[in-house]
Amino acid sequence: MRRRIHPALVGFAALVFLFLLGPLVIILGASLSNTTYLAFPPEGLTLRWFENAFEISAFRRTMVTSFSLATLGTLLSLAIGIPAAYAMARYRWHLPRFLGNVFVLPVLVPEIVLGFALMKSVATGLDTPIYTTLLVGHALLVLPYCVRVVGASLAQFDFSVEEAAVSLGCPRWRAFFTVVLPNIRGGVIAAFVLAFITSLNDVSISIFLTGPGVSTLPIQLLAHMEQFFDPTIASVSVLLMFVTVVVMALVERTLGLTFLAR
């Protein structure tokens, strides 16, 4: 039996998709437009704005900064987040419950406030180099994702497996690496991807922490937009989207997106 779907529902669903995908299509179109201003539908087709994005040294520099920040910040965050998630899953009954929420605080505090606080306390207070401050900020920003996603993975893990390893003569620290880690691999990868993308696209924390000589790609994009309103902005956006899609697709192919949904 085929279920009849009400035409209004079809229409509504189409509107939702239009709403979600429309901006992406517009940006993609605008990035290809052969005009010196953002135009949609594109007038003429060219790839020169993509070329331009790589030719402007500020974009090249900030791309490197953004990718290295996203990579290092995520790794730093995982280095803190995995042990934290492990401790909270393993000693659930012995630890106070608010501990779990502490690690989610960066999500609850508006990012603007977080960025401002970091600027006040770390950047100006301790006078740390800009890159270091950015790294700390990004690690903090993505920490909730790391703790939550790895934690979700650990919640499914039967800790008697770890005890079995110990009973067979494996010291506990080694059991973590040989038995626990391989079995939460999916969660760790998913956490890495989520955190990486979040860090790569972040504006609100970075805007407080960038400074002379050091900036991130999204911040550079804003700066560029204030002076030139040309399709380079669109092409850089498309590149950022492209990286995100490729990473997501890789995860989907290797693990399935269910890891992210969990």
């Binding site: 008697s160 497996v161 005890e163 079995a164 038995v179």
Partner: peptide, 10 residues
């Protein structure tokens, strides 16, 4: 040791 949940290494 033999566990209730078997605790095999998945």
């Amino acid at each position: 040791l033999v566990f209730q949940t078997y605790a095999l290494f998945p």
